[in-house]
Design a protein around this nucleic acid. Structure first.
Lengths: 327, 327
DNA sequence: CTGTTAGCGCTTTCAA
DNA sequence: TTGAAAGCGCTAACAG
């Protein structure tokens, strides 16, 4: 037994004194093999420390066991939970997920789609940007399934999972108004995120329904780090007449707002699109739009495998449930 | 132009009226190609929407552009930050990272190593368990580099990155004692995590040095979710004589402890191994052992690529810096 | 139930 | 500088 080289299927077949095809069948779990040959192959594989070469199998069979995933920011809890859920579901189908973080850069997104498609994955899960469609349309035309997560994929009719951003926000802000909050500031992320506009609109609609409005300058865009959120909140709260509530359109802005509200000692309510750690330990009321991100990631993967099983079926757009939780 | 099939290198060569090898050279950036041929190939590739098939290249050349990564829990911020850092560094080397979550199950860990090595990755980054070594030793003997992250990989001499758990904890607990805290509880994770013992020892050593000790029953093991931490903390704080400080040996336990301390209204200090959101908004003092997890992940990947460049070099064990921060 | 043959798309080797 | 041929490890298609 020579350990200096990786054992191939041919080596195993040789060792077991069977044909390479029989070895292949055994190691792929094909039933129609005589028990004594199966045993011989298994013994040989184990003896030689055989490990299949999926790349070779992929090349020949045309189907790999990988699913690509491109998310906006792997170190953001929302996106990493999506990835965790997708990986769970993929594992049920014997697939690995290649998860990459585009960091919001469309240049990097282009590189990553290129790199991922070069692996000939079963499909792609992506939190798309407005630049995504042209990157993937060729591949989609070859029948590779793509699922859009969180944001819509404009210009391409693919399966998707996402929230009803407008409705859930309207409901949450309405609840905040009903407990007496009238004067809102809004911390929003980049307008390039398609989820942001409906959230902001939802908030403003809820206010308008009660005859309220957001004062000029109190809608702060482009908040995508906690420290930006802290700076913006600190500025707002130090105004002569600070707001009595802040709607935080993403998870990092809620953390930053909570931190500064605590520092200021003011009683300011938080309405947050995402649950955040220690949200129930704040002084002012906290209204949170809860959602199960891990389940959302799993759902996206499920749509992908569903389509693989039935390529002709109509595209589906899943609206993930949210729940309002008041701390 | 027929779009019904993916273009191969042969198609491109054909279209450009050059040999397949010349097309290969151009698309791999080999310099020794006449400019006019290069231009023809590039035009053809673009016309046909050519996308290379990395699996085929891997098979022939023997080296892939993937790095495997197995972490304990993708939805835990510590691990996802490691993954983000590793992905960054890998991208600099033109590699993709396949990140998988073992969920602390050694069975799943075994499946994942199997699946990942089947892809013939350049190397593996792993937060190992006590069961890891036998899973990877064959592959290591073939020269595939493995880097252990956070925990040591027992029984195998591989590169690693990790903390000085004992020393940093001792320092933090010493600081807590010096601000008047004497009576500690300890929330620890599973003893299977090799990082836990030194942290607990470090804490106890710091106390012993001041003539203090942890009361029997006040060292709680196996805390790995926030709700477990909350339950344990609630129980401890409702004792007739609650502690005046809690050492939280991982990030989720700190969140749970903070939540319950807030609810109880007691002045209990937190010493936490990891920074946590809103740590500065707690009533009691919070002492945090800070570390840059993203940099740690990047460092691990760097060790991997270093070794790829110089397979013979001695193994390196990087101790990642930590800093004590007092809120 | 088992084996043979061909070839997936690419890179390597070697020759021109 | 360019090209022809071989073959990486595996599976599909077809025989036996």
């Amino acid at each position: 037994m020579n350990v200096s080289r990786r054992a191939t299927l041919t080596d195993v077949a040789h060792e077991a004194r069977v044909s390479i095809k029989t070895a292949s069948r055994v190691l792929n779990g094909v039933e129609t093999v005589a028990p004594h040959m199966r045993a011989r192959v298994l013994a040989a594989a184990s003896l030689l420390g055989y490990r299949p070469h999926r790349g070779a199998a992929t090349m020949r069979s045309g189907t790999s066991d990988m699913v690509g995933m491109i998310i906006r920011d792997m170190s953001n809890n929302f996106y990493s939970s999506l990835a965790a859920g997708a990986a769970d579901e993929a594992q049920k189908h014997g697939c690995l997920v290649i998860t990459c973080s585009s960091e919001g850069s469309s240049e990097r997104e282009a590189q990553l789609t290129e790199a991922i498609f070069s692996q000939r994955p079963r499909g792609l899960l992506i939190t798309p940007t407005s630049m995504t469609a042209p990157l993937i349309c060729t591949e989609v035309s070859f029948g590779t399934p793509v699922v859009a997560i969180d944001e819509p994929l404009e210009g391409l009719d693919v399966d998707s999972v996402g929230f009803d951003n407008l409705l859930s926000t309207r409901e949450a802000v309405t609840a905040a108004v009903s407990i007496g909050r009238r004067d809102f500031a809004i911390l929003s992320d980049s307008a390039a995120l398609r989820t942001m506009a409906p959230r902001v609109v939802g908030a403003k609609e809820a206010l308008a329904a009660k005859g309220l409005r957001v004062r000029p300058g109190m809608t702060i865009p482009d908040i995508h780090t906690e420290s930006q959120a802290r700076a913006a909140t600190a500025r707002i709260l130090s105004l002569p007449r600070p707001p009595d509530a802040i709607f935080c359109a993403n998870n990092v802005s809620a953390l930053g707002a909570a931190a500064e509200i605590h520092t200021s000692g003011l009683n300011v309510a938080i309405v947050a699109f995402d649950e955040f750690p220690l949200s129930h330990t704040q002084n002012g009321p906290v209204l949170v739009i809860e959602h199960d991100d891990r389940a959302m990631g799993a759902m996206a993967a499920q749509l992908l495998f569903d389509r693989l099983a039935d390529p002709g079926r109509a595209t589906r757009h899943i609206v993930v449930e949210t729940a309002l939780r008041i701390h």
